[in-house]
């Protein structure tokens, strides 16, 4: 992908990348056009069409991206870095499916401009498990408590739940419901999500 300046640190070919690579060549002229545009310093050249240099540390790795100024952090993660775990539900900050951590704070990546996140530390669902593959206690708790059906909201739920516990807002069921209200689950797995957070919080605190 031409926008991805530092090339190749993807662990493997993702489903999206595979589909993208095997799709028709109709995408190629667009990508060529993107690559042809210079990466500009916006202070010097106020051109709305210029690509913007954005540096992000995502799950411990540094990424330098050249992005259209309108790109949200969510689109940067999904379409430019290939991390499609963070989901686009409403794209208006109402559903919580896009929740990631920015400098340790749970944040809606769909309402964050990638440009605004320049220089920040981003953690997504892909970075939550240990490098040896052991799941984070919250991930394991969601499995143990059957805290999802379709799973679409789950990455956002889990990132939000980790934030909820770290903030100290998971003292009891009422607090969990209140401080998780920004994550909607159309399958209504809410009771099991509360149970999962209760399970994980003792392990996280312990």
């Amino acid at each position: 992908m031409p926008e991805h300046l530092d090339g190749d640190d993807k662990p493997s070919v993702s489903r999206r990348r595979f589909l993208g690579a095997t799709a028709s060549t109709a995408a190629l002229p667009f990508m060529g056009a993107s690559a042809a545009r210079a990466v500009a310093d916006p202070a010097v050249k106020p051109d709305p069409g210029a690509l913007l240099n954005v540096s992000l540390t995502i799950n411990g790795k540094d990424h330098r991206l050249g992005l259209d100024v309108r790109t949200t952090l969510l689109d940067a993660l999904r379409d430019h870095v290939g991390l499609t775990g963070s989901k686009k539900g409403c794209d208006h900050g109402q559903c919580g499916a896009c929740t990631v951590h920015v400098d340790g704070q749970r944040t809606l990546s769909c309402l964050t401009l990638a440009a605004s996140a320049h220089g920040r530390v981003i953690e997504t669902i892909e970075g939550l498990a240990s490098t040896d593959g052991k799941l984070h206690p919250m991930q394991q708790a969601f499995i143990d408590n059957d805290a999802f059906q379709c799973g679409y909201c789950t990455p956002g739920q889990i990132m939000s739940a980790v934030g909820c516990v770290k903030e100290g807002h998971a003292d009891n069921d009422d607090a969990i419901r209140e401080y998780m209200s920004g994550n909607l689950c159309r399958c209504a797995a809410y009771p099991n999500i509360v149970a999962a957070i209760n399970q994980a919080k003792t392990q996280m605190e312990g």
């Binding site: 929740t99 944040t107 401080y179």
Partner: peptide
């Protein structure tokens, strides 16, 4: 007001 994520932002 809002949600925990929005209040963080």
């Amino acid at each position: 007001a809002a949600s925990a994520q929005l209040r963080n932002m």
